[in-house]
Design a protein around this nucleic acid. Sequence first.
DNA 1: GCAGTCTTCGGAGTCATTCTCAATAACAAA
DNA 2: TTTGTTATTGAGAATGACTCCGAAGACTGC
Lengths: 151, 151
Amino acid sequence: MAAYTPSALKAELNERGWRMTPQRETMLKTFQNLPEGTHLSAEDLCDQLDKEGEPISLSTIYRNLKLMARMGILRELELAEGQKRYEINQPAPHHHHHLICVRCNKTIEFKNDSVLKVGAKTADRSGYHILDCQLLIHGICPTCQRSIVPI
Amino acid sequence: MAAYTPSALKAELNERGWRMTPQRETMLKTFQNLPEGTHLSAEDLCDQLDKEGEPISLSTIYRNLKLMARMGILRELELAEGQKRYEINQPAPHHHHHLICVRCNKTIEFKNDSVLKVGAKTADRSGYHILDCQLLIHGICPTCQRSIVPI
DNA sequence: GCAGTCTTCGGAGTCATTCTCAATAACAAA
DNA sequence: TTTGTTATTGAGAATGACTCCGAAGACTGC
Ligand SMILES: [Mn+2]
Ligand SMILES: [Mn+2]
Ligand SMILES: [Zn+2]
Ligand SMILES: [Zn+2]
């Protein structure tokens, strides 16, 4: 749950016998420069990097998304149906949670420090090294409540 | 976020122009009678119903799991990799959250009313009709912290 | 530099989930 | 109770997000 510089990432990778690569640095920088509220899928990221002239193969993207999520650099989100989305894992002042409409997937981000504290305390009590803490609220948004469309 | 009887389920289904079926009643009862801490995948449920002599086709199970989750009767959980798991959505005294090890998927359930209140308040403030509220903590469990196995 | 091995790439493969459609059966109205 | 309408089921096919594979490339430590 800390912000990473490329060299901090390299240090942590090497410490575990892994290697820094241009692809990993590109992915880190891309996520760090994303506007708040952006949640990228693997394909989204692949397309965006293509457009920016720094293409990375889809397999590499999948591999490194999972790696960086398990290192606590990225958070893995299950917001919409069918595919995982990722965002940078920011510490306290930027850390946030998600409120999602199950019908139209409209997503609202919100912050709450007390939830974050509950998360830290709970993980600690069980001896877990915490990587991410997200409150997920599913509901039906005002628009969808009014709509006649079922489900 | 309320407990359902078969007739309450039928009433709510009919209200929307949908129908009560033996399959839906069987699924509801099965989830209600599950021991606490049980998280079933679609295939788990299919296998269990086969053994109990009340088989339901896998397509029907998938269809109704999603339906019941969107009605707020079941909660859809993304605990392990690769498949969704479901449990009954209990109100306040039984409602709980999950702490998960990203390496071995060991899962601990815990209760916290203040988080539940934050969830209700947040949904309300945005006009969302709340269906589920789950705090998801990802971390590394004590055993996996000690293990030499990477990632 | 060099050896060792971690990583990348592209394509093939996997499998959870969704789709299709004919047959069935709730539901509501008569 | 009977009947018409149409939601639902079941079996298998199809989809697609994701993983695996193997050869080629490239970090790291020595
Ligand atoms: Mn977000
Ligand atoms: Mn649970
Ligand atoms: Zn909506
Ligand atoms: Zn573990």
